[in-house]
Design a protein around this nucleic acid. Structure first.
Length: 415
DNA sequence: ATTCCACAGGAAACAGTGGTCC
DNA sequence: GGACCACTGTTTCCTGTGGAAT
């Protein structure tokens, strides 16, 4: 069969094939349903806190904790959507910049995003926060001055606040929790922090901690039966009738339940499974499709991570692959040799340790600290992905592919 | 009880880059 | 055009760790 026929077949299959999904947006991360399940108490608390703050024209800060996919962001977005509608009816002057600090990952980027979101950058040159060039102090001053002049009520939402503080410290939070002392008349800023880490608070300056966590909410992970209900409800919105089997829903909930009760993951798994079923021209999403989806998501994620890594990270991955002992020293030796072979200046051991720990966080490898007494302390490093995945991801990298061939030779010699 | 190994990982500093301001 | 600013990736320096060896 020629390539053209394969393309034709796939094209025809997809276009003429049965569609299982009727509302794709309902299966994306940004979708906020009309009614949120199992989070009534949390919704009430946030709405109450904000209502009281707006009624009394005074700030009120909130801190939300919970593992990924426990509905923190969805609940906040849900409350805020309703708030904005209400406020515009009542002609209240409120602004709600929603900043994901995983993307706006420096203090300055957060300030820039706030200015963009509140359209401060269109308000006049004296308030403008440029993409770069200003000092942090000047950028903060301009935003606060604008809030003061316009007498705005601002509810600043910082999503993934823990990653911002990890990287940049809590200076920006300090500035904003203290800002109201400077905006004495008219406007004010309330802060809602959303954190994936429960220990995040310990990293804060005591003054920031006390004012930021006036009110705290913990989002517990969803249980498997709750995930089943969430999925069932979402399926009604997103899928045509009878297109997802009960078995598929149960397996999907069980898989996501095992990983911290992550509802986002459950919905994502379902979406990919449905796409696989559609591609195969099936009438229903079954358990097999869920399993295939799980495999595809893992494979695609790892492939993307490796492909987009720097040359040094790629060489380190290959060094781990080649290392027999799998300890830091051995991996560093092999890495240094690989660098010489590819005419790269090797990084220091300190930096390599850092990269290894980053790979651990990404789930590409696992590390275990082992103590060998007199023979020191080291990490046992193991790859969690297959050699085939690594080779597939690196095959198009002209600088690295000679090393991949070298690993192949090594494997043949050792078999 | 003390020494020693082989690191882990925090803190600070630095270089290079890309931007604005005056 | 030079001063100034922030960001990223890195190096340098340093302290801490825990169990085997002495």
């Amino acid at each position: 069969m020629s390539d053209n026929n394969i393309v034709d077949e796939i094209f025809n299959n997809i276009l003429s094939g049965k569609s299982l999904i009727k509302n794709r947006r309902a299966l994306t991360i940004d979708y906020v349903p009309d009614k949120l399940q199992f989070r009534d108490e949390e919704t009430k608390t946030i709405a109450q806190t904000l209502s009281v703050a707006l009624k009394g024209s005074r700030p009120s800060n909130l801190l939300l904790f919970g593992k990924p996919g426990t509905g923190k962001t969805a609940v906040v977005k849900y409350v805020i959507d309703n708030f904005i509608k209400k406020a515009s009816k009542m002609k209240m002057n409120i602004h709600v910049p929603f900043i994901n600090t995983k993307f706006a990952n420096t203090a300055y980027k957060v300030l820039f995003e706030i200015a963009e979101d509140m359209q401060i950058n269109k308000a006049g040159k004296e308030y403008q926060v440029y993409f770069t060039g200003l000092s942090l102090g000047e950028a903060t001053d301009r935003i606060l001055e604008y809030i003061k002049q316009q007498q705005l009520h601002v509810i600043l939402v910082l999503d993934e606040i823990d990653s911002l503080v990890d990287k940049n410290g809590d200076d920006i939070l300090y500035n904003f929790t203290r800002a109201n002392e400077r905006i004495t008349e008219g406007g004010f800023i309330s802060l809602i922090g959303i954190s994936n880490s429960l220990t995040f608070k310990d990293k804060l300056d005591p003054r920031v901690r006390s004012s930021l966590s006036e009110e705290e909410l913990i989002f517990n992970p969803y249980k498997i039966n709750q995930l089943q209900k969430i999925l069932s409800e979402r399926i009604v919105i997103a899928f045509y009738e009878n297109t997802v089997t009960d078995g598929a829903i149960n397996l999907c909930a069980a898989m996501a339940g095992k990983e911290n009760g992550d509802a986002r993951k459950a919905i994502d798994l379902l979406r990919v499974a449905a796409e696989i079923a559609e591609l195969n021209n099936k009438d229903q999403v079954t358990e097999d499709d869920i399993r295939s989806a799980q495999y595809k998501i893992e494979k695609d994620t790892n492939n993307e991570i490796i492909k987009n890594s720097t040359t040094h990270t790629k060489i380190i991955i290959l060094a781990i692959l080649k290392s027999k002992q799998g300890n830091t020293g051995d991996v560093y030796d092999i890495y240094s040799r690989f660098c010489l072979q590819t005419e790269n200046e090797p990084l220091t051991q300190r930096r390599v340790t850092q990269i290894i720990s980053e790979l651990d966080q990404l789930g590409i490898i696992t590390t275990n600290i082992i103590n060998q007494g007199r023979y020191g302390r080291s990490q046992k490093i193991k790859l969690t992905i297959s050699t085939a995945t690594i080779k597939e991801a690196l095959k198009d990298d002209v600088f690295i592919s000679p090393l991949v061939n070298l690993i192949d030779q090594y494997n043949i010699e050792n078999n």
